[in-house]
Structures are given as structure tokens and as C-alpha cells.
């Protein structure tokens, strides 16, 4: 093995760091490439070289005749995303609380939730599509697509809640009850603040997974497209950098959301750290 006398790092540090940096490049490089290409000049194409720099393709994006129904599909995707976010956060929290006690059917439901997570999404899409068709209901983003998305986001949220409550120190709650708090007070003032960072994480997952979901929406969105369906449609008939402009905008939007969520989690944690000494006094 390599001499390790005065090297501070373990053997293999440098090659592994190189692998890691290459991995990050692999993850972000392509996205950065289309971000760059979306600023193509008006005569530029889908590949390099850049023919000047402009905001031409971003302006094109907002002209309806260029790209199908960008505004409408974006609105629907946002509303659907928020609906999925709220339902996922609330339902997972409730289910997480439920599983702190034993109840009949709990095991079966847990395994069904796991099945829901790993079932190929085309099955859910097809199943809900045919079910609505047979029931004479017309699928829509706010009904069938919402349900389809929840079959994917809820199990994720549930698993996160399981992890949270497994690590949860019950003595805080017991102390609150001993000091005369009602069950609601101990939940509202003790449990909820403690799990808030994880709940923000669940909400973030709920929104982004729904906002980007394609397969589950395919047969469940009904007449009007969501944004990913619109983008998929564009891949077959739009051959200009307007596609990249759209990709850059939605990716930027996702980054902003993730950043906001991380900031919120950080603020919650910091406020707690600052209040902790006061609470002990």
C-alpha cells in the first residue's frame, strides 16, 4: 500500500475525489449545456456552436403559436403540484402518527404502500385510465391525475415519517403531558415543531415529484396537458432551442423551490438551536 506516514488523507482519497467530481459533472453537465444553448442567437440551432447570444428563445416561449399551451399547462402543473404537496404532507403526517400505535390492518396497509411505491407507473396510469373510462368519468388533472400522483408521493412521505418517528424521543411528549398539556397541545407545541424540518422535506418531495411526473399522468390527465406532457409533445415536433429555454426555466424553477425548502429547514433548525439554551434555563 502507499506510504501513509505523513499523508493526512486515507489512501484512495485522490482517485475517489476525481470519481466524485466526474460524477457531479455527469449529473449537472448536460443540464448546464442546454442552459447555455437556450441563450442561442435567433439563427442558432440545437447544437453548438452558439450563433450569438440572445433571449430570443425565451421570448418565443411566451408566444402561444410557438409552443402549444405553455401557460395553461404550467398553471395546471403548478396547481396539481401544490394539491399533491398539501395532501402528501398532511396524509403522511396523519399516517405517521397512526403508526405510532398498533392497529389492525396496519401491516397490510404498510406493504400495500410499499407496493404502490415500486409498481411500474405505467400500470397505475393504465389502471386508473381504464377505471375512469369504465365508470363513465372523464379523467382530469384534479381528479385522476391527483390520485395517480399520490400513489407515488404518499409512500415516499410515509417512509420519511416512519424514519422520523423511529428516531423521535417520546420523553418530550411525556414531559408535556406531565406538565398538564392536552393531547392537542403536546402535538401542536412539542411534536409538530420537532418534526417540522422533515415535514418540509416531505412537502418538497410531494411538489417536485408531481411537478415532473410523466408516466403516471399520461393516461390520467384527460383533455388538458400538464407541463411534462407538453414538453414530451414538444420533443417530437419542436426542433429549435425553444425546447432548451423551456427546460432551463423549469429546472431553474425546481432549483429555486429546493433552495427555498432547504433555507426554511435551515431557519427552523437555527431558531431551535438558538432557543435551546433558554429552554434549559
Amino acid at each position: 500500500m502507499a506510504a501513509s506516514g505523513n499523508t493526512q488523507r486515507k489512501a484512495g482519497f485522490i482517485p475517489l475525489t476525481i470519481v466524485f467530481v466526474l460524477f457531479l459533472l455527469f449529473l449537472y453537465g448536460p443540464t448546464a449545456t442546454i442552459a447555455l444553448l437556450s441563450f442561442q442567437g435567433p439563427s442558432g440551432g440545437l447544437t453548438f456552436p452558439m450563433n450569438g447570444v440572445s433571449l430570443h428563445w425565451f421570448r418565443q416561449l411566451f408566444e402561444t403559436q410557438q409552443v402549444g399551451d405553455f401557460g395553461g399547462s404550467l398553471t395546471r402543473s403548478l396547481l396539481l403540484g401544490f394539491a399533491v404537496m398539501f395532501s402528501t404532507a398532511l396524509f403522511s403526517l396523519l399516517a405517521g402518527l397512526a403508526y405510532r400505535r398498533k392497529f389492525r390492518g396496519g401491516g397490510v396497509l404498510f406493504y400495500l404502500a410499499l407496493v404502490s411505491l415500486i409498481l411500474p407507473s405505467i400500470l397505475i396510469s393504465l389502471g386508473i385510465g381504464i377505471m375512469f373510462d369504465r365508470l363513465g368519468l372523464s379523467p382530469a388533472w384534479y381528479s385522476s391525475a391527483l390520485g395517480a400522483h399520490l400513489t407515488w408521493t404518499l409512500p415516499f412521505g410515509l417512509l420519511i415519517m416512519f424514519a422520523v418517528f423511529n428516531r423521535f424521543n417520546k420523553s418530550y411528549e411525556a414531559a408535556a403531558i406531565d406538565m398538564g398539556a392536552t393531547a392537542w397541545q403536546s402535538f401542536r407545541l412539542v411534536v409538530l415543531p420537532l418534526i417540522l424540518p422533515s415535514l418540509i422535506g416531505v412537502a418538497l418531495f410531494g411538489f417536485t415529484l408531481s411537478y415532473d411526473e410523466f408516466a403516471r399522468t399520461l393516461m390520467t390527465a384527460g383533455t388538458f396537458n400538464t407541463l411534462p406532457l407538453e414538453i414530451y409533445g414538444m420533443t417530437t415536433n419542436v426542433t429549435s432551442p425553444v425546447l432548451y429555454a423551456l427546460g432551463t426555466l423549469t429546472t431553474l424553477f425546481s432549483f429555486t423551490l429546493i433552495g427555498t425548502a432547504l433555507l426554511a429547514i435551515w431557519i427552523v433548525r437555527r431558531r431551535r438551536a438558538r432557543n435551546a439554551p433558554a429552554a434549559e434555563a
Partner: peptide
């Protein structure tokens, strides 16, 4: 947490 389709494109 970003779009799969965009990442493929």
C-alpha cells in the same frame, strides 16, 4: 427533483 424528460433531452 428536477424533470426527467428535460434531463434526457
Amino acid at each position: 427533483l428536477t424533470s426527467n424528460i428535460i434531463r434526457m433531452i
